[in-house]
């Protein structure tokens, strides 16, 4: 691959990556072309996908209902494949806020949000989001009133979680595209809310 030179000389683990890859290619298990295509495919998944789903749910009550009932199927209707895993969409309301974490590793709805941010995989976030969600949210700049109930979702097995944030006020005349642009990655993890 042409970018190999960018990190030479290799560290121990980079050396392992190149070696493993070359061995697997020599054995005919993967090809460089498959790898390059997969890298590109993953690179092209960005949180805009998730934002599209959220905006659709905001403007279309039928879709919203389906999304909350069976996230996987609803996304498939939009042409978004969610292989092997099940998507659970959890809805923020005026009285309830949802927050997603994976305490055991770094499970994340990658098919809708792309690769997770560094902090999502960090020890600090993973340890504390379950035990002191309000303190963690306040570090993200989100002060939640005590009356609002928090539901923390620990993705421990085969489900993946997406938060459906509340539609911001005074956006009745906004197009779906404009609404989607207000939905950030962090809103769909539950560490932020849409601000317009």
């Amino acid at each position: 691959m042409k970018d190999q030179g960018s990190y030479q000389p290799y560290s121990y683990f980079q050396l392992m990556e190149v070696s493993l890859r070359e061995l697997l290619v020599e054995k005919g298990i993967v090809t460089e072309a498959q790898l390059a295509a997969t890298v590109e495919e993953v690179r092209n998944i960005t949180p805009e996908r998730g934002a599209r789903v959220v905006a659709k749910a905001w403007v279309n009550t039928e879709f919203r209902k389906k999304l909350l009932q069976d996230g996987t199927r609803a996304c498939e209707e939009l042409g978004l494949e969610i292989p092997a895993l099940k998507l659970v969409v959890v809805e923020n309301t005026p009285t309830e806020h949802n927050l997603v974490v994976c305490t055991l590793c770094s499970c994340y709805p990658r098919m809708l949000l792309g690769m997770p941010p560094e902090w999502y995989k960090s020890r600090n976030y993973r340890s504390r989001a379950v035990r002191e969600p309000r303190a963690v949210l306040s570090e993200f700049g989100l002060e939640l009133a005590q009356e609002i109930k928090i539901r923390v979702h620990d993705s421990t097995a085969d489900m993946r979680y997406l938060v459906l944030p509340m539609r911001p006020a005074d956006t009745e005349d906004w197009s779906e595209e404009r609404l989607a642009a207000s939905v950030t990655r962090d809103c769909m993890i539950g560490v932020a809310v849409p601000r317009i």
């Binding site: 941010p117 560094e118 902090w119 960090s122 600090n124 340890s127 504390r128 035990r131 570090e139 993200f140």
Partner: peptide, 16 residues
Amino acid sequence: MGGLPAGKVEFTEHDY
């Protein structure tokens, strides 16, 4: 590691 003592969340974003 859920629930173990840990520090503040560091907002590092890193492009892979």
